[in-house]
């Protein structure tokens, strides 16, 4: 395995880079991989890092992703309209705090796929439309958090309840 890894890795790199790779090359890579598979388990080999089975995703991962996305939406909106700073900054910070608290629950750092603001969240510079969009997003967020709270194990219920309630207060604050 120690021997097969670097070889296989080299092949894949070539494969990725080369526009003119032949079917034969691909087959050769396949053969090497098969060989690697025969010589021993391939876990730990660079080539397969991406394929290593992740620990089962936590059922709250989507909620954490939603928190990051909401934070990013508020950040984008206040970048576009600094007059909203007083209203939106604490809300963005709350979502970031929620994401951090959930990540602690998962026992691993927050996933790299940080939320990107949804297109059109603030593009027009129309403040009323911005606030309406944010309010609707908070309302949806509140519902998803409430749903998760309803079915959560006891040790997670309080945090989820606070997140759902916080999102409800955001709807109010954006009025």
């Amino acid at each position: 395995m120690v021997l097969t890894c670097p070889v296989a890795k080299g092949r894949t790199r070539q494969h990725d880079r080369g526009p003119g790779h032949s079917r034969r090359n691909l087959l050769r890579v396949g053969a090497l991989l098969a060989l690697g598979g025969a010589t021993g388990p391939l876990t730990g080999c660079d080539l397969f890092d991406g394929d290593e089975p992740d620990p089962a995703p936590d059922p709250l991962e989507p909620l954490a992703a939603e928190a990051r996305e909401l934070a990013a939406r508020h950040r984008a909106a206040l970048a576009a309209d600094p007059g909203l700073t007083k209203t939106l900054t604490p809300i963005a910070e709350a979502h970031e705090a929620h994401a951090a608290e959930l990540a602690k629950l998962f026992g691993r750092p927050a996933s790299a796929s940080s939320g990107t603001p949804s297109a059109g969240a603030s593009a027009g510079g129309d403040r009323r439309a911005t606030l309406t969009g944010l309010r609707e997003a908070e309302q949806r967020g509140r519902e998803s958090a409430a749903k998760l709270c309803a079915g959560a194990p006891a040790e997670r219920a309080a945090l989820l309840g606070s997140i759902a309630a916080a999102r409800a207060t955001h709807v109010e604050a954006l009025k």
Binding site: K86, S162, A165, A173
Partner: peptide, 9 residues
């Protein structure tokens, strides 16, 4: 601000 991050905590 009018909101807190973790109501009830």
């Amino acid at each position: 601000p009018v909101t807190v991050a973790f109501p009830g905590r």
